[in-house]
Write a protein that binds this DNA or RNA. Sequence first.
DNA 1: CAAGCGTGTTACGATCTCGTCGCATAGTTG
DNA 2: CAACTATGCGACGAGATCGTAACACGCTTG
Lengths: 232, 232
Amino acid sequence: MSKILVVDDEKDIVDLVSLHLQREGHEIESVGNGLEVLPLAVRTSPDLIVLDIMLPGIDGVQVHRRLRADTRTRHIPVIMLTARAQTNDRIAGLESGADDYLTKPFSPRELMLRIGAVLRRSQKVVMLAEQRIGEFLLDRKNMSLSINGKLIELTITELKLITTLMANPDVIHSRSELLSAVWGYADDTHSRTLDTHIKRLRDKLGDHGRHIGTLRRQGYLFQSVVGESTDS
Amino acid sequence: MSKILVVDDEKDIVDLVSLHLQREGHEIESVGNGLEVLPLAVRTSPDLIVLDIMLPGIDGVQVHRRLRADTRTRHIPVIMLTARAQTNDRIAGLESGADDYLTKPFSPRELMLRIGAVLRRSQKVVMLAEQRIGEFLLDRKNMSLSINGKLIELTITELKLITTLMANPDVIHSRSELLSAVWGYADDTHSRTLDTHIKRLRDKLGDHGRHIGTLRRQGYLFQSVVGESTDS
DNA sequence: CAAGCGTGTTACGATCTCGTCGCATAGTTG
DNA sequence: CAACTATGCGACGAGATCGTAACACGCTTG
């Protein structure tokens, strides 16, 4: 399922971890020398690295630091194995910026759970390249909107606005939510800016059944269903 | 797996089809009256409709036509069941704009294959909401680019350009390809427009290892790997 | 129905954005 | 090295775009 790089000089630990990981369908690489981690990570691009803090020659924190500093690879999540539950090691593990850490001795089960959690956390988010709502087709790939196949020329602000609204049709998007999503405003400035852009959008979208509805004092929404009243 | 609406007044056909569909893990709804199809489709929003052309009261083509005309639902693929391999029915089936059609009597296996094909065809395309290449993070959801967490303010043209380039890093994008993807130009106009925007992009992206490279007479590319030469 | 508040609408000017021009610079070819 | 071609770069102006102000309109509440 995922490619995992195990870095430890203790062969029995590596074997134990590898065994359990392979049982769960993961692909394993392992290395005992800290200096080999970086080139190996660059070459194989693993999804996760299990890194012992105690390594011959160069310690795990240093390895991790180099890994982070290296710009040839994307960010790879790291689970650090610390020697004992000593305060020093805890701090070192946390300070090094590892995504998680685990104290030796550990149960294989706990490691599996932590690996699962870290992988889930770093899971990639997918979205629909195209979204069709009736005659509206939002093409996120090409950043365009068309109605009945006809391209609607929108400015970037209008596009962000309709994209936000169409992402959750029939759901009320409050003013502050829209101001945040489209303009990045943190505070709830109350000017006529949002209204004006809503108005411009409405004009460009034309008169179809589906449209941008207003919920007084609540916000705006893209209504996907024709003929339903907006009355609250 | 998918929700399928079977519309036929012959109970044995419905049962046969339903049996086979359920075996493949699909969720089935069925109805014998053509007039009930539209409200049912609106309510349940099936992924596919298997529609008999011969129905009491209203024929399948009419039902299909109403389905298409109705704006409350998205486009739902339809497999039309025609009575015999007669030319008339063939034409009616095709004219009605069904996604596929099948002549009675048919083998359940053939129907299954056609259903599989239609569902595959209507499969939605997904894309990554975020794409990370080293310190570059392209957020397609929010239509923004950040480098090391710092938001880079890009115009819509620049954004489309870098999005196109980053979609396939380390791949050469020819001038005409970029002009087509970003500007929608069909012809290969050779002006300085593209160069100028590349220049503006480069200025905004700043000086990192990763950058937009030029391949003389070939095009541009986003280089994901630091320290590699662009020499051809 | 009158007052108050929230939203719609229009107009306008500051600023941004884009494509083009003209030339500079850097590869390429013979 | 000379001639040629492709790309880089700076500047500029037309037009697009945006936010705001001012006011109109409409809904709600008492």
